[in-house]
């Protein structure tokens, strides 16, 4: 996935890579990402990885950490495509699995959210890559085996780099 140039200089801080031993660790990473967000009040989190990699699982922790929903209230958004959790900031949980391309992002009215209006957590980002902002945090989850996942987090853009740096300070 490539970042689109929006005229500004791109900065990319070092990526972090870690192993998540069990679903609990995936939820904890979501909570930590929420804790590392402030002082920012918006951001775009692209969650890639195959079926069952743990994208939705991570958003359970993110929603809890942001204080917008309990983990049990975060279910797969595949059917609805977009689920909103109001708060400050609000969390918009998007799943592009059943979308056909970037136009659907506009059709679903997500441009404002992606432009800094909310925290957006997006599953299957590669399907709508062209509609994504240049500044975004990419969380790539991958199957290791049935009891563990590997995750690689990389930042594109200044705001996301700062978000990733704050995550590093938490650890």
């Amino acid at each position: 996935m490539r970042a689109r140039s929006n005229g500004g200089a791109m900065s990319t801080s070092a990526a972090r890579e870690l192993t998540l031993a069990g679903p609990g660790a995936t939820v904890v990473l979501g909570r930590e990402l929420a804790a590392a967000l402030a002082p920012a009040t918006a951001g775009v989190l692209c969650l890639s990885g195959h079926l069952g990699a743990g994208k939705t699982t991570l958003v359970k922790g993110l929603a809890e950490g942001l204080g917008v929903a309990e983990a049990r209230e975060v279910t797969s958004p595949t059917f609805l495509r977009v689920v909103r959790f109001e708060g400050s900031p609000s969390l918009v949980h998007v799943d592009a699995y059943r979308m056909s391309g970037p136009d659907d992002v506009v059709e679903l009215g997500l441009d404002e959210d992606l432009a800094g209006g909310a925290v957006v957590a997006l599953e299957w980002p590669e399907i709508v890559a062209a509609a994504l902002p240049a500044d975004r945090l990419e969380v790539a989850l991958a199957h290791v085996d049935e009891s563990a996942r590997n995750v690689r987090i990389s930042a594109h853009g200044a705001a996301s780099s700062a978000w990733l740096d704050r995550l590093g300070e938490l650890a």
């Binding site: 195959h50 079926l51 069952g52 939705t56 797969s76 991958a142 199957h143 290791v144 085996d145 590997n150």
Partner: peptide
């Protein structure tokens, strides 16, 4: 309550083998 994400993932491993390396495409 119900949960089906574990079943989805178990099908992946039982049907395709345990060697789901990072980046492996189902």
């Amino acid at each position: 309550d119900f949960s089906f994400s574990g079943l989805k993932t178990a099908v992946l491993y039982r049907a395709f083998g345990q060697d789901m390396k990072p980046g492996d495409a189902p």
